[in-house]
C-alpha cells in the first residue's frame, strides 16, 4: 500500500510540472478590494453569457495588485488589475522594467467614502476642517501645532454634539484610507494658515496633514467594512469611514453624515457635489490580448452600457457611474486599447 502511495505522489508531482507549462484558459484579475465587488459581478456575467471561462478575481488591494500586474508578461502573471486609485509613475516604471510596456487604463466609475453613523445617533454635519481637527495627530491651537487635545465633538465647534470623538476607519494599507487622507485630511488641513504655511515643503505639509491620531479616538478596524457597520450599530455615538456601497446596503441601520453640507447620496456623488469621492480603475495588459482568450470581450462587457451605464447592473451593486460624455470617451478608449500616458 505504501508503494502505491509513493507512486501516486510521484505522479502528482509530475502532473504539477505539466500544469506549469499549460496555457491559461481563463482571465486572471487581481487588485483593489473596493473594485472587487464590481469586477466579480462583471466576471460572473461574462462567464455566464459567453463561451469563455469565468475570470478568476483576487482581492489583493490596489498596491498589491499593481505589483503582481507589473511582475512581467506571460501566463504566470495576471492580465488585469483593479485599483481604487490611479497607477503611480513608480508603478509604471516597475511595469516597464519587467517588460509590461503597453497598459490600457479604464476608469469605471466613482465611489463615495461615507462617514456613517447608527440611525440611533443624532445627525452630524461636518466640514473637512472639523474632521481634520477631530482626527489629525497634530492640530493647530492658538497658532501652534500641538498633539490633538479634542476629546469631544463639541470642543471643536459648539454646534456639534457633546459626545466623545470615536471614529473607526480602514488601516493605512487600504485604498479607502489613502483616498480619505487625500480628499478630507489634506483639504481640511489647508484651512489652517499655520499648516498651509508649510506647503512650500511638501513633505513637511504631508507629515502633518496625513497623520491620523493614535490616542484611541481614531480606531483602525481592518479592511472589513461589514465589521465597521456592526460596530456602529452597537455604539450610536461612533462614526465609521467606509465605502458608499455599504451605506447603500445598510440604509436601514446606518446613515451618512453630511460633509460640507452635502449628504452622501447616489446623486450627490454622481454630480460631484459630495466632495469625498474617488475614481475606480482597472488596467489591462495589452501583451496578453490574443494570448489569454476573451480579454477584449471582457473589457467590452465591462464598458458596455448594461454594465457600467447609468442603469447597468454595476449601479445596482453601488457603483456611481461616469457621466454620459465620460462614458462615451472611456468606452472608445477601452475597446481601442489606447495605451496609458501619465
Amino acid at each position: 500500500m505504501l508503494k502505491q502511495v509513493i507512486t501516486a505522489s510521484a505522479a502528482l508531482a509530475f502532473a504539477a510540472s505539466a500544469g506549469a507549462v499549460q496555457a491559461r484558459e481563463q482571465i486572471r484579475i487581481v487588485g483593489s478590494s473596493t473594485v472587487f465587488p464590481f469586477s466579480t459581478a462583471v466576471a460572473e456575467t461574462f462567464g455566464r453569457t459567453t463561451d469563455f471561462k469565468t475570470p478568476v478575481v483576487e482581492s489583493t488591494g490596489s498596491g498589491g495588485g499593481l505589483k503582481l500586474f507589473c511582475g512581467g508578461v506571460g501566463v504566470g502573471h495576471p492580465d488585469m488589475t483593479n485599483a481604487s486609485r490611479r497607477i503611480k509613475q513608480s508603478e509604471v516604471d516597475l511595469c516597464a522594467a519587467n517588460g509590461v510596456t503597453e497598459i490600457t487604463e479604464v476608469k469605471i466609475g466613482y465611489d463615495g467614502i461615507a462617514l456613517g453613523r447608527s440611525k440611533a445617533g443624532g445627525d452630524l454635519s461636518l466640514t473637512k476642517a472639523q474632521i481634520f481637527l477631530a482626527l489629525g495627530k497634530m492640530v493647530p491651537v492658538d497658532g501652534k501645532l500641538v498633539p490633538n487635545p479634542y476629546m469631544m465633538w463639541s470642543q471643536i465647534d459648539a454646534s456639534l454634539p457633546a459626545t466623545k470623538i470615536e471614529v473607526m476607519g480602514p488601516p493605512p494599507t487600504s485604498g479607502t484610507r489613502d483616498a480619505f487622507v487625500e480628499l478630507v485630511m489634506r483639504e481640511g488641513a489647508e484651512h489652517f494658515p499655520e499648516i498651509k504655511a508649510l506647503k512650500a515643503d511638501k513633505n513637511a505639509f504631508r507629515s502633518i496633514s496625513d497623520a491620523m491620531r493614535e490616542d484611541g479616538a481614531f480606531v483602525e478596524t481592518g479592511e472589513n467594512d461589514n465589521l465597521i457597520v456592526q460596530k456602529l450599530q452597537a455604539n450610536p455615538n461612533a462614526v465609521g469611514i467606509f465605502g458608499f456601497s455599504f451605506l447603500d446596503q445598510n440604509a436601514d441601520v446606518i446613515k451618512g453624515s453630511k460633509v460640507e453640507g452635502v449628504e452622501p447620496t447616489f446623486d450627490a456623488i454622481a454630480d460631484g457635489e459630495y466632495g469625498v469621492s474617488r475614481s475606480l480603475y482597472f488596467y489591462v495588459k495589452k501583451a496578453h490580448i490574443g494570448v489569454v482568450p476573451g480579454m477584449l470581450e471582457f473589457v467590452e462587457e465591462f464598458v458596455s452600457d448594461k454594465a457600467y451605464g447609468e442603469e447597468g447592473y454595476l449601479t445596482d451593486k453601488g457603483l456611481i457611474p461616469l457621466t454620459e460624455e465620460e462614458r462615451e470617451a472611456m468606452t472608445e478608449q477601452a475597446t481601442g486599447l489606447v495605451p496609458l500616458k501619465l
Binding site: Q26, S33, F36, A43, T54, V57, E58, E223, N226
Partner: peptide
C-alpha cells in the same frame, strides 16, 4: 472569486473557510 467548479488539482479553486471569509466581506 471563482465561479466555475474546479475539475482537477490545477484548476483555480477556493476552499471552504476562504469562501466564508469572502461572503463575510
Amino acid at each position: 472569486f471563482i465561479v466555475d467548479i474546479p475539475g482537477s488539482v490545477t484548476d483555480p479553486a477556493t476552499v471552504m473557510p476562504v469562501q466564508i471569509y469572502l461572503w463575510a466581506d
